[in-house]
Design a protein around this nucleic acid. Sequence first.
DNA 1: TGTACTGTTATATTATTTGTATAACAATGC
DNA 2: GCATTGTTATACAAATAATATAACAGTACA
Lengths: 122, 122
Amino acid sequence: MIIEIDFNSDEALYLQLCNQIILGIATSQFREGDALPSVRQLADTIGINMHTVNKAYTVLKQEGYVKVDRRRGAVIALDMERLQTLEELKRELRVILAKSSCKNIPVSEIHGLIDEIYSEYT
Amino acid sequence: MIIEIDFNSDEALYLQLCNQIILGIATSQFREGDALPSVRQLADTIGINMHTVNKAYTVLKQEGYVKVDRRRGAVIALDMERLQTLEELKRELRVILAKSSCKNIPVSEIHGLIDEIYSEYT
DNA sequence: TGTACTGTTATATTATTTGTATAACAATGC
DNA sequence: GCATTGTTATACAAATAATATAACAGTACA
C-alpha cells in the first residue's frame, strides 16, 4: 500500500500515518493478519524518524487496529470495541455538523456524502 | 450562553472555544447580529488569558462565523462559503467513517446519528 | 474633553508537543 | 551467532499553546 505523507500539512506526521493505515484497512488494502512494514523499514521509505513511526504504531495498537507479534512485527488485528468509536464519532460529528448547519448545507447532502464515502469501504 | 471548557482535554483551549461558539450558533443560542462577550470579559469569566480568546475570535473571523465591529466587538455574521466547509467535511468524514467501518458500525447507524444530531440544529 | 470600553499588536516567557538522533535491550527466526 | 523484530531511555531542536504585561487606535458616552 502507498502511504502518502504531506510534509506541508499542519497535521502531525504520526497522526497522518495512523489515518492512512486506518484508511488502508477500511479500503481492504490491508487485511486482518497482514503485517505492517517494520518501524525502521517504513521510516526509511518515507524518510522520517523511526520513533515517529513507532508512535503511530503505538496509537494504532491502543485503539485496537493492530497487535504486535514479536516475530512478525505489527499485524493488522481488529478489536470490535464499538462504544469508544461511537463516542468519538458522535463528538466529531457534533462539531462538523454544526459547521455544516451554519453554512446551510442541507442534511440530504450529508447523507449523500456518507453513502459516497462509505461505499468505498467494506 | 454557557461555554464549557475542559482543562483536562487534549484539545487546545482556543479550539474548544471556537467549537463551543459554532455549536452555539448551530443551536440558535447565538443568532446573527448577536455580540459575543469582549475578549477581556470572556477571558475573565472562563479564567484564561485574553490572547487565547482573541485567537479563537480571529479563527472564527477567518472562517466566516463572526465579523468585527469596532463599536460592538465580535458579532455573529455568517458567510455562506460552502466550498471550503464541504472540503473540510469530506476530509474529516473520510477518516472517521474509515474508523467506523473498521469497527463494523453499519452505515444505517451513521445515518441515524446524523439525523439525531442535525435535528438539534436549525 | 476625559474616561472607559472595544479589538489589535508587540514582546517575552514558560510548558507542551512534535520530530529527530543515538543507543541499547530482550525476543525471535534462521 | 547474526539479523531482525518492537521497546525503552535519553537528549536535543523546533513549533505550538498559553500566559503576562503593555501599548495603540478607534468608538461610546457623560
